[in-house]
Write a protein that binds this DNA or RNA. Structure first.
Lengths: 235, 235
DNA sequence: ACCTTTCTTGTCACAATGACTATAAAAAGG
DNA sequence: CCTTTTTATAGTCATTGTGACAAGAAAGGT
């Protein structure tokens, strides 16, 4: 294998005249269990970094599209059906020494899921995001996680994606608890309610109500058709 | 070469047990020549897609970091020094058939440059973004360009990046012409001026003025230290 | 019956915005 | 030299969005 071949231009090359890379996908799978934001991690069973926690991931097949690889890893690890979850590309990490064994480029994906079942694989489990230090994950996965969390925080401001963390039917208070868990702040219930209701296409009333045990029962809603929030809900 | 080998897990693999990919970087290099937003394109000299326009790019070296590859392509094609330009990762495109010859994953970068010299290479030149149709570039480069333009439009709302399109010293009118070119809209000069001035850390007065030929001379400013705009300047 | 809890609506002062007017400082043309 | 034109910058005002807070509505607990 021509590990050190160098291509001089995108023109005039042939399939033997480029440096070979392995391509993987890594997943930042987030969910909300109020009042906490949680991330799915797997414990590595092999060296390097044996025993430490890492993001779930794996190789991309030679004929597999990147998003398909991410979807299949997500289903493998969580049993979540793809249609229920939000999945978007987060960024690509390819520092030469990020994996000590070989040159790997990893395409990170961010998944937002609601009501996850307990992970199917024993070595995967949910962890509080705010309980992880900046360096506690294997490889550069802490950096990838930080980028995923920041992306989620930012998307909640400008899009309706918070509904991806809720079940099909939810109350405004549940939606607020999503914002509070992801942002790590408390929000005024009355003002939050007003803003959600004032935003066309964010949520749609079902006509039903639901009691959380204590207090006045809340009306329930389903996600509506808007994708962007006008005006945004700012942190 | 094991073109069809399939890795079953991230654990327990060895360097011969993964599908090999070629990794390239593609650059969306944008600049503003009022009243137009322009993108740097190269004309392909080889098949496939010989003669059609494409984004500049090239292979990533086997020991080269992704951003370093992007920086070196940028300097090669434009002569721009890296410190003067803004460069950020845009996204990764890896559909199995995006290049007909082999499996290629391309990491796209977005570069915003000010006052570019004429391209050093004859086959590269600046093109109006609004003069390109959705399908006029080679491979999936029209899609990549669209994503780059949308990223630039969005970043102008929430960050101070518009200053990257200006020289070191600029007037508020020049900054406004950047917004108008990137967004493709006209802005009220008085309101724009008020918003820029009201945003701490966006621009810093030099004390000098500069005449554009006609009209009252404008004060000049340099970019200041803020990276995010509070409040944003909305489209 | 009362209290507590939570959801929901309402009030009010204040900040940000768009549309617009007014003034300032230069060049161009008589 | 004075007026017109052009652009930059400042100010006005009605409207809208916001945070802090009060108040009413609807349930369960004691």
């Amino acid at each position: 294998m021509l590990l050190h071949s160098v291509a001089v231009s995108i023109d005039g090359y042939n399939p033997n005249d480029y440096p070979p890379f392995a391509v993987t996908v890594d997943l930042v799978v987030l969910t909300v269990r109020p009042p906490n934001l949680k991330v799915l991690l797997t414990q590595r069973g092999e060296s390097p970094a044996k025993g430490s926690w890492a993001l779930p991931g794996g190789f991309v097949g030679s004929e597999q599209d990147l998003i398909d690889a991410a979807q299949s890893k997500l289903t493998d690890k969580t049993g979540i059906q793809v249609a229920e979850a939000h999945l978007e590309q987060l960024g690509t990490f390819g520092a030469p020494k990020r994996d000590p064994r070989m040159r790997i480029v990893s395409v990170a994906y961010l998944a937002l899921v609601a009501d996850p079942p307990e992970p199917e694989l024993d070595e995967a489990s949910w962890h509080r995001v705010d309980g992880l230090s900046d360096r506690s994950l294997a490889f550069d996965h802490s950096e990838i996680l930080a980028k995923g969390v920041e992306r989620a925080r930012s998307k909640l401001e400008y899009t309706t994606l918070a509904t991806s963390f809720c079940g099909a039917e939810f109350t405004v208070a549940e939606l607020r608890s999503v914002y509070e868990a992801v942002w790590g702040t408390e929000l005024d219930a009355a003002n939050f309610h007003r803003k959600v209701m004032a935003t066309d296409g964010f949520v749609e009333a079902t006509g039903r109500t639901e009691s959380a045990g204590r207090g006045r029962p809340a009306r329930t809603y389903v996600a509506s058709d808007a994708r962007d929030l006008h005006p945004p809900i700012v942190r």
